[in-house]
């Protein structure tokens, strides 16, 4: 991708329009995708960026171009908290999903008895709609009679944790629920990658006397690296965009302690009916996905050089 994110887009349209005459059929066959993506993605995306430079509100008649929305968002005392929540939420979710996914992948790869059930359980968690995941974890975390986690803690003599009312615990609780739901994706991909590793590599290493730990660091991890990097980017983007599970679990609370950028975008646009400021938050969401991805790509490049 040169020229950043807009590069492929420009080339996409230029290329499709300039296809040689005898290949015009290709253009026609692209029409459905081209029309739908332009109407529902490209146009709304550009329009969100345009709206961010206006004072648009739902119900406001004369919309003017101004930087007032950016000013309001950037000077909002909540913004540092929301950004901090987003960074913590994304980094810990992504790290845990990758690690647990790798662990599940390794377990499945042993082909010991019962591993099929683990795979099934992990995929089931992944297909549970986000809202239902949020509702379920909210019940699990409860301090009431049905709160299994707290009652089990008590059973072992530990103290109850107020997951939903203590700001720090609420963020931890949100991360755990999100890891539960998201690990299936990373687990299946890493299992697929693990299965693709040539068994002869392991055999050769064993003959050389390498223990299982050294085989893991020397063969498994390096072979998995490309898949881990793809996973890292995909999971990060989807975590920045996560909305439904958090909304059903905490509504962003207590206070704003679990409000991440995606929830703040919703609150501004649809609760405060401020399209301009909502659009600014949307732009911040795109920026954070881009920044995270750029950091990974930089890391990858540096490692390849070193």
């Amino acid at each position: 991708m040169r020229k950043g994110a807009s590069g492929p887009l420009l080339i996409l349209f230029k290329d499709i329009l300039m296809i040689e005459h005898n290949k015009r059929w290709i253009l026609q066959w692209f029409l459905p995708v081209l029309i739908i993506l332009t109407l529902f993605y490209l146009f709304p995306l550009l329009d969100a960026i345009r709206l961010s430079f206006t004072n648009a509100r739902i119900g406001l008649a004369n919309v003017k171009f101004s930087l007032s929305s950016y000013e309001a968002v950037l000077t909002d005392p909540d913004l540092p908290v929301v950004l901090r929540n987003t960074v913590i939420f994304v980094i810990f979710t992504v790290f845990c999903q990758l690690t647990l996914g790798l662990l599940v992948g390794l377990l499945l790869e042993t082909h010991l008895k019962g591993m099929g059930l683990l795979k099934l359980a992990m995929i089931t968690a992944w297909v549970v709609p986000g809202v239902i995941a949020g509702i379920t974890w909210n019940l699990l975390y409860s301090s009431a009679s049905w709160g299994v986690i707290n009652n089990t803690l008590e059973l072992f003599g530990a103290e109850k944790i107020s997951f939903m009312t203590n700001p720090s615990w609420a963020l931890v609780a949100t991360i755990i629920a999100n890891v539960w739901r998201g690990t299936g994706f990373s687990g299946i991909m890493q299992y697929g990658a693990l299965r693709g590793i040539d068994p002869q590599l392991y055999e050769a290493a064993s003959i050389d006397g390498a223990g299982s730990f050294r085989r893991f660091w020397g063969i498994t991890l390096p072979m998995l690296k490309p898949m881990l990097m793809i996973n890292l980017v995909l999971i990060t983007i989807s975590t920045v965009n996560t909305y439904d599970a958090i909304w059903a679990l905490t509504k962003g609370g207590p206070g704003i302690s679990t409000t991440v950028l995606s929830l703040q975008t919703y609150k501004s646009t649809f609760l405060r009916l401020n399209l301009g400021q909502g659009a600014v938050y949307a732009v911040l969401m795109i920026l954070s996905s881009t920044i995270f991805t750029a950091i990974y790509l930089r890391m990858m490049k540096e490692e390849n050089r070193g």
Partner: peptide, 11 residues
């Protein structure tokens, strides 16, 4: 994200 496109689609 669908959140981003829904702002102007709503409009």
């Amino acid at each position: 994200s669908p959140i981003i496109i829904s702002i102007s689609i709503y409009w």
